[in-house]
Design a protein around this nucleic acid. Structure first.
Length: 599
RNA sequence: GGCCCCGUAGCUCAAUUGGUUAGAGUGCCAGACUGUCGAUCUGGAUGUUGCCGGUUCGAAUCCGGUCGGGGUCGCCA
């Protein structure tokens, strides 16, 4: 190209006045004043104002009149100080402008299906469909730039601590445990399949057995499950594993990482160590194993008191082994009018609660549709337990632990938002520890690993592994930021005998184990160091640090909730020949006319 | 797989709850304008109300189905 840039659009300032420069970029705004024409030229680095005067060069001015938003142009001109009073303090380049002397239209742009302007509101669907335009917007560029900076910081941090970045295969073995696998048919082994990794879990353990000692990888993982705002079928994990260490080592390394990332990439000062909370306590106090600790509004158990009431719903819950739990919206009586309560009741029911009981404390009296089921003395006890006073509104959910916890967790977050209890720009990291090793899978009628089958039980619980499996705690830990699980890991089992006992509990026979993870067990037989690690959800961390509601905004080309890509139109049908080569026959009939991309 | 919200001009939305020819902002096109900066002013063009079917004298509006976007439960070791 003839006019290659000498500067970027975010670079020129008053010290450059007088220079002859060339800028390349996209036309962002045109402000046509007749004989005077302003163009905002945009690139990744910023925006610079370019001026065209008819009096100065009529031909050039006429050419500039044809410019439209998102034309790609090269402008040669002179850097001038803007006239007195016309500087734009909102722009780093706002003191200067470039008086155009040459204009080259490198590429015109057809009328656009969406505005690139950062102020324009565009629906998520349109943004994904025209992602190339969406990604031109400064906000999205900042998101991607921030992602890059965080990744660079992570790499520097681990490199300094002698961690080795090792790539693990994407075409690997399907494992029946865990999430649904994405399968890739093998042409050379007809009828057989690779799976895309849900995580490099087994490989990083093999790397420990191989003596790599300290491993990390920023790696794509794949899980064929339903999507959420914070779940994509392919997502990026910061994967870490270390040898000859215990929980404290992993925790210390990761706390150091988060402090460094926050400081260097986000410019935010946070302090380690992070608070720790036991799984059981998290569920009891917040209804969730990833509690948002930025605010209080804690759950309170009233099961024992509820048993004494005449309210059948409360009686039934406590009689059947369930719970009655509540929370106190302190001094919120005026902020929660009756209509709002009705909305909250409906909200709780949509989450799965049978109902939502409430009491409004006004002066010495309790206003509540269920007050009549409580003796005066019991009402006093309820208020005491809930630490309730005049102006408070109490909410209660009765049911099995899981349902009640879920409903109250959502209710707590909703009230926290509605009542403005959640501080902005606060980053509250915490560890959730003391997870149970196992849970009872009622559908499969067997125990299942809460984390994964290589997670080590706490050594002091090994004795009761077979007798009281559900009471055994794991050497596992989750990292939580603002109520979102951003990572989890564990110390692994490296003792073959313990591993065998656990497989037996999980209903995995020796034969099964050999077929499924034989390669790892073989490693363990050949000298396995004690090891453990963690995996962090990079997309979620970025989302939270950028104050976004979805990881879609920190991923360049994300999928929709139905798992499709609106930009490329993937997935799509393939040619019959491709399927034939792979030995695959779809069960569903092809849509007529849908076969297009013959290779 | 279940439940909920949404789908109207290129884009973002409205349409007095079933009633005349579906509007606004923005963008687009044309014109005016020498200091704007999300420029301003004047004028103009733009609709299969996602799609299919039903109810009705009459449907953007109600009903059924379907497709698409989003949230959530299940699922996500």
């Amino acid at each position: 190209m003839k006019l290659q840039r000498t500067h970027t659009c975010g670079q020129l300032q008053h010290q450059d006045v007088g220079k002859s420069v060339i800028l390349n970029g996209w036309v962002c705004h045109c402000r046509d004043h007749g004989d005077l024409l302003f163009i905002d030229l945009r690139d990744r680095y910023g925006v610079t104002q370019v001026v065209f005067h008819r009096a100065q060069d009529a031909g050039l001015h006429t050419a500039a009149k044809t410019l439209r938003p998102e034309f790609v142009v090269a402008v040669q001109g002179q850097v001038n100080l803007r006239p007195e009073g016309t500087a734009n303090p909102a722009l780093p380049t706002g003191e200067i402008e470039v008086l155009a002397q040459t204009l080259e239209i490198l590429n015109p742009a057809a009328p656009l299906p969406m505005e690139v302007d950062e102020h324009a509101e565009v629906s998520g669907e349109t943004r994904l469909r025209y992602r190339h335009l969406d990604l031109r917007r400064p906000g999205m560029q900042q998101n991607l730039l921030f992602r890059h900076r965080v990744i660079q910081t992570i790499r520097r941090y681990f490199d300094q601590l002698q961690f080795v970045d090792v790539e693990t295969p994407f075409l690997t073995k399907s494992t029946p445990e865990g999430a649904r696998d994405f399968l890739v048919p093998s042409r050379l082994s007809p009828g057989e399949f690779f799976a895309l990794p849900q995580s490099p879990q087994l490989f990083k353990q093999v790397l420990m057995c191989a003596g790599l000692d300290r491993y990390y990888q920023i790696v794509r993982c794949f899980r064929d499950e339903d999507l959420r705002a914070d779940r994509q079928p392919e997502f990026t994990q910061l994967d870490v594993e270390m040898s000859f260490i215990g929980e404290e080592d992993i925790i210390r390394i990761i706390e150091g990482l988060m402090v460094t990332v926050m400081r260097e990439a986000a410019g935010i000062s946070i302090h380690a160590p992070f608070p720790r909370i036991a799984y059981r306590e998290a569920v009891d106090r917040y209804g969730h194993d990833a509690p948002d600790l930025r605010f209080g509004l804690e759950l309170v158990d009233v099961t024992d008191l509820a048993r004494q009431s005449e309210f059948k719903v409360f009686q039934a819950a406590s009689a059947s082994g369930g719970v009655v739990r509540g929370l106190n919206a302190r001094a919120a009586s005026e902020q929660i009018p009756r209509r709002q309560i009705d909305a909250l009741v409906q909200f709780a029911q949509e989450i799965g609660a049978k109902g939502l009981a409430w009491m409004r404390i006004e002066g010495q009296t309790v206003h509540s549709p269920i007050a009549k089921f409580f003796s005066p003395d019991l009402l006093v006890q309820f208020q005491k337990r809930m630490e309730a006073g005049p102006g408070d509104v109490l909410f209660f959910v009765a049911g099995d632990l899981k349902t009640a916890s879920l409903a109250l967790r959502h209710l707590r977050l909703r009230l926290g938002n509605d009542l403005g209890l959640i501080p902005k720009n606060t980053y509250h990291f915490s560890w959730v520890v003391d997870f149970p090793l196992l849970e009872w899978d009622d559908e499969e009628k067997r125990y299942a690993a809460l984390h994964h089958p290589f997670t080590s039980p706490k050594p002091e619980h090994l004795a009761i592994l077979e007798e009281k499996p559900l009471q055994v705690l794991a050497r596992a830990y989750d990292l939580v930021l603002n109520g979102v699980e951003i990572g989890g890991g564990s110390i692994r089992i490296h003792d073959q005998e313990v591993q065998k006992r656990l497989f037996r509990l999980l209903g995995i026979t020796d034969e099964d184990a050999e077929i499924k993870f034989g390669f790892l067990l073989e490693c363990f037989r050949h000298g396995a160091p004690p090891h453990g690690g963690i995996a962090l959800g990079l997309d979620r961390i970025l989302m939270l640090l950028r104050g976004l509601d979805s990881i879609r905004d920190v991923i360049a080309f994300p999928k929709t909730q139905k798992g499709t890509c609106l930009f490329t139109r993937a997935p799509s049908p393939v040619a019959p020949r491709q399927l034939k080569e792979l030995g695959i026959q779809p069960a569903r009939a092809e849509k007529p006319g849908s076969i297009s991309h013959e290779k």
